[in-house]
Every structure is written in C-alpha cells, then in structure tokens.
C-alpha cells in the first residue's frame, strides 16, 4: 500500500511514544485517586469585528489548592490557530504540543498546508485517545479551538466535549469551572446589550473579555483574577486575517483600568 506519510502521531508511535491515555490501561482501576488532579479553569472565545478573541485566566488548581497563577491556557498552534484549555493541563499541553508539531510536520512533509477540517479532526482524535484518562477523572481536556479561516475570510470557534465530539460555535463559547458563572452573562450581552460581540471593535472586545473573566473569578474560586501584587493579567489573544496576536501587558493594564475598574465598568 502506498502511504503519503505526514501523520505525526504515526511517526511518534514509531519512535516508541505512547499518548498518556494509552499508557494508563486498567492500572488505576476503581480505586480512589491518590492525589488531587491539577485543573485549569475559565476559557472564553467570541467573534468580534476583526476575527476571533480568545481569553483565559491564569490559574491552575489541584482540589482547593491554588497550584499556579501564571499558567497560560491559550496555546498557540500555528500562525492562525490557538487551542484554549480547561481541564487537565498535563494532557492539554501534551495535546497542544502534538498538534503544533503535527501541523508543521504535515506541511513540510506533504508540501501543503493541513486543511481546517483535517486540523479539527486531528484534535478530535487526540481527545478520543485521551478517553481512558478522562474516564479515570484525572485527565479530561475540554478544549476550544479557534482559528481564522482564510478561505472563508472569517474567524471560527470550535468546542469539544470530553469524548471528542466537535461543535462550531456561532457567536461565543466558554468552558471550564468558571463558565457557568458567565455563560448567561455572555448570552445577555450578545442578545440584549445593544451591541453584539460580532460588532465590537478590538478594544471593546478585549475590555469585555476582561470583565467576563473578572465575573467568573467572582463566583469560581478556581478562576484566577487580576493579581495586583504580582501584576498578572489574563491571557488574551486575537486571530484576524493577519494572524495571531497576543495582547501585551501594557494594553491589558490600560483596558483593565478602563473596563473593570474605571469609566466603562458601569456600562455593559
């Protein structure tokens, strides 16, 4: 049989690599976990005027312990796509690392870009491969995949369930432990605030993302908020026709002051 190659997971298996979920097997059985799994928390994404905005808080928790307040849960995959994660960071970072290499490997090996449907499919397969860990309750990953589709000329947001089913979100999505606290707020904003997300300019979009993450942290202890003492802001990234951009701390500081603490704070 002729194969074109280009499947990075195949290549990894040839080098002896096994995905974390594959290694677990029945080892853990039904026993209670001997440790509290580490988890990441609130992610949101929405369409705004120029493309897609993706934001996440920076906290990683293990049970009621705050493990880390500088986690970056919005992970770059290539120049036009990010994966934002809630759930187990260990597995999520592994998935992101595999995907980042898989996209590059495919492009270099087959001398063509991987198509968007194929990228979505690769992510879905990895989530399925992770099922054993998800079933054990220690490694579920619920990612949001966001990209700018240059062929259609618009941003796209996809979310997944723990089994790997993929859904495209029309306007906005949010996942993670803080998401119940803001899902309704996002619906309300988009429907009745008089300004849909899709109509917001860049700064307004960033400002609203900061407000929403602050709201999540108000009700969810596993979602971090802006840390004044350490000057840690949420991760906020935009994806537009010109590619992926991370919002710098300086701009986040200014917009945080304006939208969360300041003059815009009282307005929806």
């Amino acid at each position: 049989m002729m194969v074109s190659g280009g499947d990075f997971v195949d290549l990894l298996r040839q080098t002896g690599y096994r995905f974390p979920g594959e290694q677990l097997g029945d080892a853990a059985g039904d026993r209670a976990l001997p440790f509290e799994p580490t988890e990441g928390t609130t992610i949101l994404a929405f369409q705004y005027a120029d493309g897609v905005l993706v934001a996440g808080d920076r906290r990683a928790t293990a049970g009621n312990m705050v493990l880390y307040d500088r986690a970056d849960k919005v992970i770059d995959l290539d120049a036009y796509s990010v994966m934002a994660i809630s759930g187990s960071p260990a597995v999520a970072f592994e998935i992101a690392r595999i995907l980042e290499h898989a996209f590059q490997y495919y492009r270099r090996r087959l001398l063509q870009e991987m198509s968007l449907p194929a990228k979505l499919r690769r992510l879905s397969l990895l989530i399925k491969d992770n099922l054993p860990l998800a079933m054990q309750g220690i490694g579920a990953v619920i990612p949001v995949f966001a990209t700018y589709d240059r062929r259609d000329g618009r941003g796209k947001i996809y979310f997944y369930d723990a089994l790997g089913a993929q859904f495209e979100s029309a306007d906005f999505t949010t996942t993670g432990s803080g998401s119940p606290a803001i899902r309704g707020a996002m619906y309300y904003l988009n429907r009745w605030s008089g300004r849909r997300f899709a109509e917001m300019d860049r700064e307004t979009a960033i400002g609203h993302a900061l407000q929403l993450l602050d709201t999540a942290s108000e009700y969810d202890s596993a979602t971090g908020r802006y840390e004044r003492s350490a000057d840690i802001f949420p991760s906020v990234k935009t994806i537009t026709a010109s590619g992926l951009a991370e919002i710098e701390t300086e701009e986040l500081r200014r917009l945080y002051a304006q939208y969360v603490d300041g003059e815009e704070a009282g307005r929806a």
Binding site: L11, L12, T15, H101, Q104, R108, R109
Partner: peptide, 14 residues
Amino acid sequence: RQAAIDMAHAIGFN
C-alpha cells in the same frame, strides 16, 4: 528529504 523531516520532528517533539 522525508527522512530528514521525520528525524527532525521526532527529536523536536521528544
């Protein structure tokens, strides 16, 4: 070319 790409990506990932 393919051998070089395979080797580079396996090392880069692992």
